[in-house]
Design a binder for these strands. Structure first.
Length: 584
RNA sequence: GGGGCUGUAGCUCAGUUUGGUUAGAGUGCCGGUCUGUCACACCGGAGGCCGCGGGUUCGAGUCCCGUCAGCCCCGCCA
């Protein structure tokens, strides 16, 4: 059908007869001469029709064409006349002179343009999603999905070379007892019973380790029926990895090697080994567990110096066991009060009652905090005239997120320079538990994380202080992946589940099959799961997740192109033993 | 479940602040002229449920209430 791809025709083919197929990208009708820009996924090639070289039929056909029609063109590759070369275009030095043209299919006028003139805004995302095939024809979208393909291929090659097997795990599975809400799938054979779509293949990959597969990888689709965010989709793809007889170092090393290869594919830097930071340090220095280390700005502890000032707020916070932490912003005093309030608002949105600030001037300090300054306060804080101090007082669980938000807002307000464009980081030693409120414990990550043996003695006395053998991969402030060493001892796993508030019969009902497997000779094992969508979005320049997924869902978890979800006929529901209640 | 922003021609946007005669522009589309264009150029034309429903008013694209959709955020989610 074709002898060459449009974008791959070169001057060396000059004089040769070719057949090119593709879409009409644009058309320029000069009357006697007609130029077609012919597009396929490889690029764009100009085809010219003129009475001296085109058949009469071809001339007629060419005049009736419009954009997005699908055509096959037979013709001869020619260098363009010197004056007609287009240096802006990859194939701008040549064209195909049409001898015959066949219309393979007509297109109605596209609802959204595939070709966008320079400086024309993209159609609204609403329309891009509704008319997805047209949107996907655009070069940017084709390039992103091509990159995604090359990245996933590199993932498979990387793990194959390391001896991993890709093994599929079920999509129809068992509802999970905690974590996100499950998508449920009714069983017709067993009316009233349901499968769940997997939130991740977590338990299956552990079972594969127990089954002796040693090294497993899967490009796995995962489903979570939760409300959306810019960085979340209800169905998403993970690079799911698990291996037996491993230490965290093994997993981290494999992942760093993988990121080197993926960065090379994407044309960015990933210098290994990656920086590492414990969860504790990340919270202390950056107020969050996935700090954006492209910027150097760090949180500091000012409790000693600020705690002795004559401020009821500060003293009260310290007396209640809190601390005073903040950011020393070099040159920040140039910010207007309005900009400072914007930083404070960011902190408030993150849950802080407020932010205290002091502008440092040659003559002392001003602002709600500055007015309490003593003669030596500035120097003891290590601040210089022209600086701005923003501080939050209280318990760490309040001030950390507030200062994380204040840090991001300050970076934006001061337009702070980046110290690197590609900040890779491992955050390690995550706590096993988090406070579930009203005295209960919840799993910080998931209930299978191996507690650090060094903290085993704290399990009863201070469970919240128990660190897990867990690690997150962070890139430019985005969490790309998360993993851990798992418990392979059934007794310890049972103990942890019971600490999480599960009764013995619940443990048996929900995790019995896992515990039984663990008792059958489970090897020590661990792994990680990396988010493919986020990874591709980041590696293609920080675009939206929706731009690296061919057919994504909207913020309200709808598929606007296909029109899903949709109601189903009552008879189908009846066959499943389901009746729909509520307002319907 | 809650909050914010947006919705005007096929598409991108003005017009909404302060209600007032016939809602505009660019592009696309349709017709015409044009043999080296590449955002082709030029001439002419068609194209509107101002998201939808209700209300206020002599009068609503503009004000109010509700609702739908898209995006962003909180809750939720690893």
């Amino acid at each position: 059908m074709r002898t060459a791809a449009a974008g791959l025709v070169t001057l060396e083919m000059a004089g040769r007869g070719v057949r090119i197929v593709g879409w009409i990208h644009r058309r320029r009708d000069l009357g006697g001469l007609v130029f077609l820009d012919l597009r396929d996924r490889s690029g764009i090639l100009q085809a010219s029709a003129g009475p001296d070289w085109s058949s009469a039929d071809a001339m007629d056909a060419v005049r009736g064409l419009s954009v997005e029609d699908v055509v096959a063109v037979r013709g001869v590759v020619r260098p363009r006349p010197d004056a007609a070369r287009n240096p802006e275009m990859a194939t701008g030095d040549l064209e195909i002179q049409i001898t015959e043209l066949e219309v393979l299919n007509r297109a109605r006028t596209p609802a959204i343009p595939v070709y966008l003139p320079p400086e024309e805004e993209l159609p609204s995302e609403k329309l891009r999603l509704r008319h997805r095939v047209l949107d996907l024809r655009r070069h940017e979208m084709q390039a992103r999905l091509a990159l995604r393909h090359r990245l996933v291929l590199a993932v498979r090659n990387h793990f194959d070379a390391l001896g991993f097997y890709e093994i599929e795990t079920p999509i129809l599975t068992k509802p999970t007892p905690e974590g996100a809400r499950d998508f449920l799938v009714p069983s017709r054979v067993h009316p009233g019973e349901f499968f769940a779509l997997p939130q991740s293949p977590q338990i299956y990959k552990q079972l594969l380790m127990i089954a002796g597969f040693d090294r497993y990888v899967q490009i796995a689709r995962c489903f979570r029926d939760e409300d959306m965010r810019a960085d979340r989709q209800p169905e998403f793809t993970q690079i799911d990895v698990e291996a037996a007889f491993v230490q965290p170092e093994d997993i981290l090393g494999w992942c760093e090697g993988l990121m080197e290869k993926l960065a090379e594919v994407a044309g960015i830097e990933a210098a290994t080994p990656f920086r590492r930071m414990t969860y504790h340090d990340a919270m202390e220095r950056f107020g969050c567990d996935r700090p954006d280390l492209r910027y150097g700005l760090e949180i500091r502890d000012f409790t000693t110096v600020l705690g002795e000032l004559d401020s009821a707020i500060l003293r009260g916070a310290v007396e209640k066991g809190g601390r005073i932490r903040g950011l020393g912003l070099e040159g920040g005093a140039r910010l207007t009060r309005r900009r400072i309030v914007a930083v404070e608002d960011a902190a408030k949105a993150a849950g802080a009652p407020g932010l205290l600030w002091a502008k440092i001037t040659e003559n002392g300090a001003t602002g709600p905090l500055g007015r309490f300054f003593r003669d030596d306060t500035r120097t003891r804080l290590g601040l210089a005239p022209g600086d701005l101090l923003v501080a939050a007082a209280g318990p760490d669980r309040v001030t950390s997120p507030a200062l994380d938000a204040a840090r991001a807002a300050s970076i934006a307000a001061l337009d702070l320079p980046r110290t690197t464009e590609h900040a890779w980081l491992w955050v390690t030693a995550f706590p096993v538990f988090e406070d579930g409120g009203d005295g209960t414990l919840a799993a910080n990550h998931h209930p299978f994380v191996q507690p650090d043996p060094a903290d085993a003695h704290l399990l009863d006395s201070d469970p919240l202080a128990v660190r897990g053998l867990a690690y997150d991969l962070v890139y430019n402030g985005t969490e790309l992946g998360s993993g851990s060493i798992r418990m392979h001892d059934a007794a310890l796993q049972t103990r942890i589940l019971s600490m999480l508030g599960l009764r013995p019969e619940e443990i048996t009902a929900k995790f019995g099959f896992l515990l039984e497997a663990l008792r059958s000779g489970a090897p020590p094992h661990g792994g990680i799961a990396l988010g493919v969508d986020r990874l591709v979005a980041q590696l293609s320049g920080g675009t939206s997740l929706r731009d690296v997924i061919a057919f994504p869902k909207t913020t309200t978890a709808r598929a606007s192109f296909e029109g899903a979800p949709s109601p189903v006929p009552a008879a189908e529901l009846a066959a499943l033993g389901i009746s729909v209640g509520g307002d319907r």
